[in-house]
Computed example of a mutant assay.
Amino acid sequence: MKKLSTINTSERNNKERSGFTLIECIATVAIVGILSSIALPNYMNQVNRTRQNETASVISQIQTTIAAYADEFGVLPTSWADLNNTNAIMTENGPATSSNFSAINLAGGFYNAAITHTDNLFTITATRDDVTNLNVIACINLTNGASGINQGKGTADTAATTPNCG
Rank of each mutant, 00 (worst) to 15 (best):
I7Q: 08
I34E: 11
G148I: 06
Q63K: 08
Q52S: 02
V47E: 05
E72T: 15
N48H: 06
T127C: 06
N13F: 14
T143A: 12
W80G: 01
Q61Y: 02
N45Y: 10
A68Y: 02
A30D: 09
L35Q: 12
T116N: 14
N100H: 09
L121T: 03
I59F: 05
N135A: 03
N8W: 08
Q52Y: 02
A70Y: 02
D82T: 04
I31L: 15
A126N: 04
N150P: 01
T97N: 13
N14Y: 12
N45T: 09
E24M: 06
N13D: 15
N93G: 06
P163Y: 06
T86N: 07
Q61P: 00
I59K: 04
V29A: 13
Q151S: 13
N133E: 07
I7G: 05
P163N: 10
Y111P: 07
S37L: 14
I115N: 04
T28W: 01
V136Q: 04
S79C: 11
N144I: 03
I124M: 05
V32Y: 09
I34H: 11
R17A: 15
R17V: 04
T65R: 03
N164T: 14
T91G: 08
N45P: 02
K2Q: 10
Q52K: 05
N105S: 13
R17P: 05
I149T: 09
W80I: 03
V32E: 08
E72S: 14
G154I: 00
T9S: 15
N112K: 15
T132N: 09
C165M: 07
G145I: 00
L4K: 03
E11P: 00
A107H: 10
E16D: 12
R12M: 14
I137T: 05
L106Y: 06
N45C: 01
N112M: 13
G108D: 09
A27I: 06
I137D: 01
I7D: 06
G109F: 02
A103Q: 13
R12F: 13
S99V: 12
I31H: 08
V131M: 06
D82Y: 03
N13W: 13
T158G: 14
T28I: 01
L40P: 01
A107D: 13
C165W: 04
A30L: 13
A160V: 03
K2R: 12
A39F: 05
